Amino acid sequence: MSRSPEPDTDETAAAERLRHALGPVTAVRDTALGGGLYNSVRLFELADGRSLVLKTAPPAGTPCLTYEQGLLGTEALFHRLAAGAGVRVPAVLHHEPAGPRTPAEWLLLSHLDGTTWDAARDRIAPAERAALRRELGEALARTASVTGPAHGYPRPAAGLSAPDWPTAFAAMLRAVLADAHRFGVALPAPAGDLADLPRRFGRRLAEVCRPALVHFDAWEGNVVLGRTGDGGWRLAGLIDGERAFFGDPLAELVGLDPLGTAEDDPDLMAGYRSVAPLPPLGTGARIRLALYRIHLALVMRVEAVPRAYEGGFATWLATWSAGRVTEQLAVLDALAP
């Protein structure tokens, strides 16, 4: 389905990373975890009973989207900030940026016990799902309570941050359009029309005044659930905060349900609003949601080339992303002719 990064099979290097971060420790089991589409991921079970996750980025020079530079640094920052806001996330044990002696960035995290929501989906009763959606809404509201130093992605070197949200979002959108050109990805609408969207709807983007922390990838595969015996399911935490940015908290609704409309989920929204207010979903909010859906669909469409997606998934993604962009452009035209 995809060209995941080559697994980090060098056990000596992995053991050295553990010792570098933790001192003398013994790993009794080392398991490569699937599902990662960019970083390689390994689960280590230590002799002292701890379970840790080691994430390693692809080597420098691997084709990637502009925003994907230094993703593990973003993930480390997200987990630290979210934990401070009371959200259950993996603990950051060590982050090592790429450098002269480090060919690939890596991140060591604690492991959240449980199973991902998508893996448990068929075992969750409707009433349990409603309660979990409320818990998820509460967690995302707490995440959004964190205020960043600027809008956009948190790595200044990428040039995708700015003092205001309209400028930052314009840079984020321009970056993925430039990536499409660089990788030869056909766009479902003229590039100029897409690039003009932040100017066209700048007044609505300017309604966002505070750079809130946004996970932007809290779909069911990145939500961990736990249970005790045959007891009910509970939210164990959020993982994979590598797409995080500072901006409009409404964007979280797009990232957690890329294919749907999370704002129409009463349980999720009730959970969120039990912790913090969201703006009324009037014209301005719906315009911004449409803009974020276009942006995410473009990201997913363009990443297919450097990640070498193939087969049925690649075909589906190309068709879906084109339809999603066209659909949301029509929403924008209807809301603001």
Rank of each mutant, 00 (worst) to 15 (best):
A27L: 10
R273S: 06
Q69R: 13
F183P: 03
F246A: 03
W233E: 12
P188F: 10
A157D: 08
S40L: 04
P258Y: 04
P156H: 06
T319E: 11
D118T: 15
H181E: 15
W106M: 05
R121C: 12
G229M: 12
E75S: 11
S40F: 10
D10W: 04
V305M: 07
L298F: 01
S51V: 04
G148K: 02
A83W: 03
R123P: 01
L37H: 15
G282D: 13
G114A: 05
W219T: 12
P188N: 09
F245C: 12
L281S: 08
F201H: 14
R19F: 14
A21C: 12
E128P: 08
A180K: 10
F246P: 07
P126K: 02
P166Q: 05
D30N: 12
L43D: 03
A91N: 08
E327L: 13
A15G: 11
L173P: 00
T102G: 01
G271N: 01
F245G: 03
V302G: 00
A314N: 12
A251V: 14
Y38L: 15
T167Q: 09
H181P: 00
E128D: 14
R121E: 14
R204H: 03
A170H: 00
T102F: 06
S40N: 13
A98D: 12
Y272T: 10
T143P: 12
A21N: 14
A130E: 15
T326W: 04
Y153Q: 06
H20L: 06
A171F: 01
S40G: 13
T9I: 09
L81E: 08
R88K: 00
G86W: 03
G99V: 15
G311Q: 14
L18M: 09
R142G: 09
G226I: 01
L317H: 11
A244Y: 07
G312C: 10
A21V: 09
P188S: 06
L235I: 15
L281A: 10
A119D: 06
G202H: 02
F169A: 11
T66Q: 01
D30R: 08
G232R: 04
L329C: 00
A285E: 14
E75H: 09
A57G: 15
P100F: 03
A308C: 00
A297M: 02
E105I: 09
G255S: 14
V25W: 04
A139D: 08
P249A: 01
A98V: 11
R19W: 14
W165Y: 07
G282E: 04
L238I: 13
T261G: 07
R123T: 08
R123F: 05
R324N: 11
H95Y: 05
P190N: 03
L225Q: 12
S161C: 04
V275E: 09
L278R: 13
H95W: 11
V146Y: 05
R199L: 08
G70S: 07
D248N: 10
H295Q: 03
D333P: 05
V185E: 11
A168C: 01
G23A: 08
R80N: 11
L289C: 07
S51Y: 08
